[in-house]
Design a protein around this nucleic acid. Structure first.
Lengths: 342, 342
DNA sequence: CTGAAAGCGCTTACAG
DNA sequence: CTGAAAGCGCTTACAG
């Protein structure tokens, strides 16, 4: 079943069918009605390969998600999809593995889908720096900053991760904690050229939090790198508590890691927050269902989503240069921090 | 940059370039070397739209996942992808919303990707019954049975959900519980024609568990329908405990619901398992990180994945009629069931 | 408002 | 082993 069959049955040329299918105005009501009737009757769906092959620009927004299992992104995505739909556009979602190259994918999407614009949920700054020049449509990078890269067609909407991490540390210090362990992602001195992948940024924020409060932070002892996963957090917490049995609090740079840490603490026969206080990062739904509820630095996923879509649609409509927005985070108190001053 | 440019630069015709790109054997080593050199140098990637438009059959396996946030499927998918890759094929993953029509999507994928076969992670039996005749390639439905539908090209690999649910109930009864609440999905008498959507199957299993043990089960009072989500489980648990304050145990038909229930129980000032015992279903990673660890009926995602891929690849190679396999589940004890006999 | 025709970038028989 | 050409199913100027 192709557009040709539809044309034949309806008694029009394929061009006319195409115009009806794409909602062009220059078709008579009669033709439209007849053709739509045949389409409905046959259940015809046009072949997207053929369509995209020829089309100059589709009316879709592409969303490239780095990590199908990332719950923060899942939350943002849901909101993005409903906002894109509300704006009368379709969202085409592409899920990538953590270590796939999102910019490479974007180049491909530009060529094959020809979207109005691309939204990146997560991204590696090096990939952007190295290859983003090859993507030409308007883009917004969400949760990671892009202001230092200076691309005219790359905006960003993100959380101030350094400040978020700093405040997490401050919060623990205010509660009277002095020996605090930190669980974060892997990063190397060189991998955030220009100063920023997420793990590194949050790490620097931590360090600043300690420094400003005059609380010592021995990176060798008090920091443990791990994967962003529950087992990662579990093992890291174990390693830290083994190495520094006198820690009274942990900061995990993602809620998922924090959930792993929570379990590790319990398995060592300790309790949260009575023995060890714990704070996470991201503010995923899950954090509110932990026992105890997790204190966390909440990225405002709804607002990140809303602003990203607004900015992207404006840029797609020809609205000027790149914009870089910071969305304020919230410190959720949870039930996992003990106040030692009380 | 198209195949034409590559042909020109390499000094061959586009047909030859195409043959090299697709690994056909009928090309001279010299041509291959020259063309691959140009491809590498230019970073050329063929346009998949054009390729799929013309290609009779691609060498990919399509995977249609119902619910991007379904953690059971996420676990199965990971294993599926690595097994498909190990077999030298590419996996093309399509994520659908819970209430999208996976069979409609399959029809589209058949036409546009022309895969060797399709794997469905989850699916609504009614959609299959109504429209599956339109899909012609070999398919495997994973986690839901397809044996009663009688399609020659539709195999299935699933867990015996009725028995799993029955055993969850039995396990609670063995532990001395007599007043047990059940949290399940929504279903209506008609929606599982032929007897089976997942929620309904597990519900019937529950009922059998009660019946065989001679323990009364008042469906009106002791069953609460909810969405398969943490808030869904939270509210359902609250409703049940409000309605029947004398319940000593809950069975939630998914771990995600159970996590919500766990939080609800705590918020009512009760403890798991001291005051209320709890058992879930699925065996997602998450369940092992709860405090307390969740007892659950574990679907063996690794084996579901492995068998599904094996069966699909065999069918794609022309290996006979449909196969319907049941993979045994495991009852994970966790720490969330109190033994009242002790 | 409608049709005829070119063409998107590939693959694939068909010759040679 | 290689090239020339048809054609996949659409969209899009271009005429009329």
């Amino acid at each position: 079943m192709t557009i040709k069959d539809i044309a034949q049955r309806a008694g029009y040329a394929v061009g006319t069918v195409s115009r009806v299918l794409n909602g062009h105005p220059d078709v008579s009501d009669e033709a439209r009605a007849k053709i739509l009737a045949v389409v409905a009757e046959t259940g015809f769906q046009p072949n997207d390969n053929a369509r995209h092959l020829k089309q100059r620009e589709s009316s879709s927004i592409a969303v490239i998600v780095k990590g199908a299992r990332n719950l923060l992104f899942a939350g943002i995505l849901e909101e993005v999809q409903s906002r894109v739909r509300a704006a009368g556009r379709a969202a085409a979602v592409y899920y990538l593995d953590e270590d796939d190259d999102e910019v490479e994918q974007a180049v491909r999407v530009c060529r094959e889908l020809k979207p109005l614009g691309i939204l990146f949920l997560g991204g590696n700054q090096n990939n952007f720096a190295d290859r983003f020049e090859r993507v030409t449509c308007p883009c917004v990078l969400v949760t990671t900053r892009a202001d230092t890269m200076g691309f005219q067609n790359l905006s960003s909407v993100s959380t101030d991760d350094a400040e978020g991490a700093a405040q997490a540390i401050r919060r623990l210090i205010e509660a009277g904690h002095r020996r605090i362990g930190v669980i974060g992602g892997h990063f190397c001195a060189g991998c955030g050229r220009g100063g920023a992948n997420t793990s590194q940024t949050r790490f620097f924020g931590c360090r600043r939090g300690f420094l400003e409060a005059g609380v010592p932070f021995d990176e060798e002892l008090q920091f443990q790198a791990a994967r962003f996963s529950m087992p990662g957090g579990y093992e890291a917490a174990n390693a830290l508590l083994e190495r520094c049995p006198d820690l009274t609090a942990l900061f995990a740079m993602s809620d998922v890691m924090a959930i792993g840490a929570l379990r590790a603490i319990r398995d060592r026969g300790l309790r949260v927050p009575e023995d060890i206080s714990l704070i996470g990062y991201d503010g995923i739904e899950q954090a509110g269902y932990c026992v105890p509820r997790l204190a966390t630095v909440r990225q405002r996923s709804g607002r990140l989503a809303r602003r990203s879509v607004e900015i992207l649609l404006r840029q797609a409509a020809g609205g000027g240069g790149a914009v870089h927005e910071i969305v304020p985070f919230q410190l959720l108190p949870g039930e996992s921090i003990r106040d030692l001053n009380e």
